[in-house]
Write a protein that binds this DNA or RNA. Structure first.
Lengths: 169, 169
DNA sequence: CAACATACGGAACGCGCGCCCCGGTTGGCA
DNA sequence: TGCCAACCGGGGCGCGCGTTCCGTATGTTG
């Protein structure tokens, strides 16, 4: 690979990282190219599609998050800690709320992780039993998006966490 | 107003009602016109903008819902009943989840109604005190949208309702 | 330094959608 | 019944965006 190609690739990744974080997946690709000081064609020489670029940018952080999914002795605490982590990331960077929505293998892994944590938490009786993975994913997706519309992220998170718990009579 | 004009206006409203309910605000206006058996120009002769058409279609139902906001002796029950009603509508018709999001006076009234119910429920101690209207609106918006993505609407609703309640120690 | 593959920039394309314009048509009043 | 204003259909415009194409520039190799 030529030296300038590598340099441009890095510049594109940097610009994409910043703009995806600020504005989410919907930021125009031309804007990323402009911020990188590069033409749109150059972006496409390095990444076949906008989604590929997005995945390249988010892969590291999402993978790290998935890897950090704890399995301590307390499955309920594990799930809640993971959800808190997701919410924390999403409150700071707008791209996290798209990583759960934009189709990719990464997204599927994330869903799978959530499913596993949910199942264990339900077995332990920490979370209401009538929820399936799809419900949790949709709920989180909606909540993460709501965080970028002026609502208080902390409050939203607590409402969801409390709502997930099984009622103790 | 000429007779055929009135007839076409009605046909447009019917088609819009059905398509907005099925697909939400994002349905192309040309599709509405086609279903009504009319050209796009005709739609714009009767409604200055797509949003105006949307408002004309949803106004009756939303106003009815706002009017039905109870103020019985139990403010907590009033709020929860209203939220249940919204969720019920949204689960059946996709346009309800847009009525809370698409800018219009109607939307503002809806937000105001939610704010009033919330404030009274909080005074009564039925709902956690650290929520503001904006939080509730965002939360509902996210939840209503999630309902159209394969999640179980009933479960989503119960999670939110339980999450809103103040913790009773 | 020459020569060539590689990479670059940005103009251009295709598409979808909201919205407008205009030549033709039609309903209702005199 | 004849005339005119009101109305109609649908082609077309403008815009934004993802993506592609190609003439030009540049890094690399011998």
């Amino acid at each position: 690979m030529r030296a300038d190609a590598a340099r441009n690739r890095a510049k594109v990744l940097d610009a994409a990282r910043e703009l995806f974080a600020e504005q989410g997946f919907d930021v125009p690709l031309d804007e990323i190219a402009a911020k990188a000081g590069v033409g749109p064609g150059t972006v496409y020489r390095h990444f076949p599609t906008k989604q590929a670029l997005f995945q390249a940018v988010t892969e590291a952080r999402v993978s790290a998050m998935i890897a950090s999914a704890g399995s301590s002795g307390d499955p309920g605490a594990d799930l809640f800690a993971f959800l808190r982590k997701m919410a924390g990331e999403a409150a700071a960077k707008r791209d996290m709320s798209d990583a759960i929505a934009v189709p990719s293998e990464l997204r599927d892994s994330l869903h799978a992780t959530l499913g596993g944590l949910l199942a264990r938490a339900q077995e332990a009786g920490a979370v209401r039993a009538d929820i399936v993975t799809q419900d949790l994913v949709s709920l989180m997706k909606g909540m993460l998006q709501s965080m970028h519309e002026g609502a208080n992220p902390q409050v939203l998170l607590e409402i969801v966490l409390q709502g997930l718990q099984s009622r103790k009579p």
